Amino acid sequence: MHAAVLTQFGAPLTVREVPDPEAGGGEVLVEVLATCVAPYAAEVFSGERSYPLVPPVVPGIGGVGRIVRTGPDATRLRPGDLVWCDCTVRSRDDALTPDITLQGWSSRGEGGAQLARYLHDGSFAELMRVPTENVYPLPAAAGEDPARWAALGVHVIPYGGLLAGQLAAGETLLVSGATGNLGSSAVAVALAMGAGRVIAPGRNQAALDLLADRFGPRVRTLPLTGDEGTDRAAMTAAADGRIDMVLDLLPPSAPASATRTAAMTVREHGRVVLMGGVGMLGGDDLALPYPWIMRNCITVRGQWMYPRPANVGVIRLIASGTLDLAPERVRSFGLDAVNDAVVYAASHRGPFDRTALTPPAR
């Protein structure tokens, strides 16, 4: 098969012939129809983000595909089925604290690295080997535009954070980092889940205008000044009441003060979910005040990625039309143009901009 291979950090991906993967027990072989190219992929491949990929490796974070072959333990999946392949792979020998790897992308700890050595390659290829439990049936409509449906891999991440924070219908949510790729997705997903109002602060006025135009009065946008007191007061005023939950999706380049400003707008007994990259490049600690957390009974939770059922939930939201993919701007590239796709994704990282890689049909 043809695949895009990262031969070393700092070098362009090389499209070349590699052996077809062979699926064993507990695995399926999938023909890749479309996969998303992350806006920060160039930072990963350059080594800037120091991801624990071990070249040579076929990168790629999940995707839409058709099953080619199943293992003996698959009782409902059949060759030809249209499926979503989730990249979040968990070890099977610890139900409470499983090790995790993001297939073809990243991992956590030595256990995650061990998983990554086994499930080494991702979706920038014609074929991919996937654990059976990481494959989810898709409606036939996904086959008409798999590149658009590949955005599932973006939307399922904030959905996991909203589930972790137990967002309820009618509640007010503040999305810290709302003008980014994941943050804008969080706005869309929260509204699809029934949020009564979403507060969307940011520095990019064009992105704020886009959110306001797409979602109307249920979204309250506001420009940030960088002053904690001023911005916190503006967020609280925009809520027109209490903020029930804050979801932080700020990137590594953002200061901890921006996360703290948003977090401290939450009401008594409110919830704060941290999913972003703040602190990964160094800088000040988050420094949320102990008395404020304790006296106001605040729940602060970290969430990396999402639980397995989140895949099913997002598929249902999209299939029902509650989460509408139609307004998203999708640019597709063939496998041979993978390096062009990486460059394009880096310069199109705003709200609802999607870059897809579509390997040729076999």
Rank of each mutant, 00 (worst) to 15 (best):
A3S: 14
L6C: 12
F9W: 11
A11R: 14
P12V: 11
P12E: 10
E22D: 03
G26E: 05
V30F: 06
E31G: 08
V32L: 11
V32C: 12
V32N: 12
A34K: 07
P39V: 10
A42C: 02
L53W: 11
V54S: 15
P55Q: 11
G65K: 03
A74R: 06
W84N: 06
D86F: 00
T88F: 07
G109D: 01
E110C: 06
Q114K: 09
D121G: 04
V135E: 04
L138A: 03
P139N: 01
G143F: 13
E144T: 10
D145E: 13
A150E: 06
V156Q: 09
P158A: 08
A164M: 13
E171K: 01
E171V: 03
T172N: 01
L174C: 03
S176D: 05
T179N: 05
T179Q: 04
L182G: 09
S184K: 05
S184G: 09
V187Q: 01
A190Q: 08
M193T: 11
G194N: 13
V198C: 12
I199P: 12
A200T: 11
R203K: 12
A206K: 13
A212Y: 02
T221P: 00
G226R: 08
E228T: 09
A234V: 04
M235C: 11
G241C: 02
L247M: 04
A254I: 02
A256N: 01
A256V: 00
T259F: 00
R260N: 00
A262G: 14
A263S: 09
V272S: 03
G282N: 08
Y290H: 14
P291F: 15
W292A: 15
I298R: 12
R308Q: 08
N311W: 01
N311F: 05
V312Y: 00
V312G: 13
V314L: 04
I315A: 08
I315E: 10
R316F: 01
A319R: 08
R331L: 08
S332T: 14
F333N: 11
G334F: 09
V338Q: 13
V343H: 14
V343D: 15
A346S: 15
S347Y: 07
G350Q: 09
P351E: 09
T355Y: 00
T355N: 06
T355L: 07
T355C: 09
A356N: 04
P359M: 12
A361C: 05
